[in-house]
Every structure is written in structure tokens, then in C-alpha cells.
């Protein structure tokens, strides 16, 4: 179970009225390499991974939900005061037609979220390597988002999130080493 702390992991500030940024940021909300896919992937893999690394998946999967609500806050702040006309101009006309200002789990191109974005193979090496790849892809996504954004406050939050991907990748790489380790040499024949 979880305890909820009613604050964001890192403060989200938005300095410019720029609803179009929300259209791009939604990639990290409901996209293939987004925070929802990451959280669900790790929290689901926990059950069948060796217990030596299950706690890591628990902790990182939980943190991904903290990132998810940071992205949600950014998207909400960027769109909440936009008129239907501004939504249209920002390329969010199709979103507005279906959802008004509500957030929805889809990627920047509007493709709805799907569980096929991630895998649970059951093979600990395959699963951890997928997790490392997922972190690198999320890091790249944050880079492309930062490249497109000229809002210094949004970029501050995105740079924090990008750095967390770097740290998570490091931890998963350590987990791979733990899985490869020759422990207590006991062999079970």
C-alpha cells in the first residue's frame, strides 16, 4: 500500500501561456516511454523478479507516479485558462473535441495509451534490460521536449525529471550486475 504526500516531488512552475507545450508534454503522460508506462512496468515486474532487486522496482515505480503528477500539473497549468479558440490554435482542437480540458492518457500524436507499450517477460535479465532501455528513452524524450520549450520554469522541472532518468538507469544497471553476480557458490543440482 501507499501513503500519499500532498506535494509534488519537485515544484512545477509555468511562466508563459503556451498551450501548445501541453500537446508535446502529454507524450510523457501517456506515451510509450512516458511516466505511466514506466510506473506500471516496474510495479508489475516486482512480483516475479528475484527479491534482491524487487525493492528497487518498488521504489522507482513509485517515484514514476510522482513524476506523472508533475507532468499532469504542467499540462493542467498550460491548458486550464485556454479558450476553445486558443486550444485549436495550439493544435489541441482534436483533444478539446473529445476531452474538453481533461487530461487523457495518450501520446503527443493522440494515440491512446496501451499496455503493449511495455513487457513483463519473467526473465529477470530481459526485464531489467528493458527497464534500462526505458530510462534512456525517457531521458531522450525529455531532451527533445526541452529543445522545443522556451519556458525557463517548465525547463527547470524537465531538467530535474531528465536527471532522475539518469539516476534510475544507473540503479537498474546495478541491479543487472547483482543478477549476474556469482553469490554463495551453492549450486542446486
Amino acid at each position: 500500500m501507499w501513503y500519499y504526500e500532498k506535494k509534488l516531488q519537485y515544484p512545477v512552475r509555468v511562466s508563459q501561456c503556451n498551450p501548445m507545450l501541453a500537446k508535446f508534454l502529454i507524450e510523457q503522460y501517456g506515451g510509450a516511454d512516458g511516466e505511466l508506462a514506466a510506473a506500471l512496468r516496474y510495479l508489475n515486474q516486482r512480483y516475479t523478479i528475484p527479491d534482491k532487486v524487487a525493492g528497487l522496482l518498488n521504489d522507482i515505480g513509485t517515484e514514476e507516479f510522482a513524476h506523472l503528477e508533475m507532468i499532469a500539473t504542467m499540462v493542467y497549468k498550460l491548458t486550464k485558462d485556454a479558450t476553445p479558440e486558443q486550444m485549436k490554435e495550439a493544435g489541441l482542437g482534436a483533444h478539446y473535441a473529445d476531452h474538453d480540458k481533461a487530461l487523457f492518457f495518450h501520446n503527443a500524436a493522440g494515440a491512446p495509451f496501451t499496455a503493449t507499450y511495455f513487457q513483463a517477460k519473467g526473465d529477470p535479465i530481459a526485464d531489467i534490460y528493458e527497464d534500462i532501455a526505458a530510462e534512456e528513452k525517457a531521458r531522450a524524450t525529455y531532451q527533445w521536449l526541452i529543445n522545443m520549450s522556451d519556458d525557463p520554469d517548465i525547463n527547470d522541472g524537465l531538467k530535474f525529471l531528465r536527471e532522475r532518468e539518469v539516476v534510475h538507469s544507473m540503479r537498474f544497471r546495478e541491479a543487472a550486475e547483482i543478477l549476474k553476480e556469482e553469490r554463495d557458490k551453492k549450486t542446486y543440482y
Partner: peptide, 26 residues
Amino acid sequence: TQFKYWEPYISPFDPCPPMRIKSYST
């Protein structure tokens, strides 16, 4: 070694007879 073995937690309330040793490929 090409295979690693580990001992998962066994609950006193598990419904099926436990598999005490699990393995994976390295």
C-alpha cells in the same frame, strides 16, 4: 555460471506447494 538460483519468500498461507528454488538464465 549460466544459471542462477534463488530462494523466494514462502508464505505460510500459500495455496500451492512451494517451489523453494527458482532459477534464471545468465
